[in-house]
């Protein structure tokens, strides 16, 4: 994923991710204000609570579309391997933490953190994957 030379698919991915990030911030503010001041209950409360998650799912979809659109098989493989590194790391952390929660009452890790943890591991696996291809 070289920053200097971007394929049309990479450019579209960047635009889509930036667009969904802006929506995440907007929807999170709406949800926060709605829950705090709107006194919502029942289904409307659930709908407003889920609102900020939708653009985040959109980012995942944008990466899926990128994998579909990217013509360069090497770039696609690099990303797939980073994603696999990301999910491997995430599942390892959540499993170990889950057993620590169950047996030694480790503090609860909110489910909202799993998504950033995933991208952290994607970022950590990137240099390893690139180094392996050298």
């Amino acid at each position: 994923m070289n920053c200097a030379i971007k394929s049309p698919a990479q450019r579209r991915l960047t635009n889509r991710v930036l667009g969904t990030l802006a929506l995440t911030v907007l929807f999170a503010v709406i949800a926060g204000l709605g829950i705090r001041f709107g006194h919502l209950r029942g289904i409307p409360a659930y709908l407003v609570a889920v609102l900020p998650a939708l653009p985040i799912i959109g980012v995942i979809a944008a990466f899926g579309v990128f994998l579909d659109e990217e013509k360069d098989e090497f770039q696609r493989n690099l990303l797939v391997q980073c994603l696999l590194g990301g999910i491997g790391g995430t599942l390892a952390v959540t499993t170990v933490w889950g057993y620590l929660e169950a047996f030694v009452h480790a503090p609860h890790l909110p489910a909202i953190w799993i998504y950033p943890i995933f991208w952290l591991f994607v970022g950590l696996s990137m240099p390893v994957v690139i180094w392996r291809y050298r």
Binding site: A31, V48, A53, A111
Partner: peptide, 20 residues
């Protein structure tokens, strides 16, 4: 992510990490 926001805003039960 959806569950996380539900935990945050409408206090659904905590998703045990072991289940992921």
């Amino acid at each position: 992510t959806v569950w996380g926001f539900l935990e945050n805003f409408v206090h659904v039960p905590h998703l045990q990490l072991m289940w992921i």
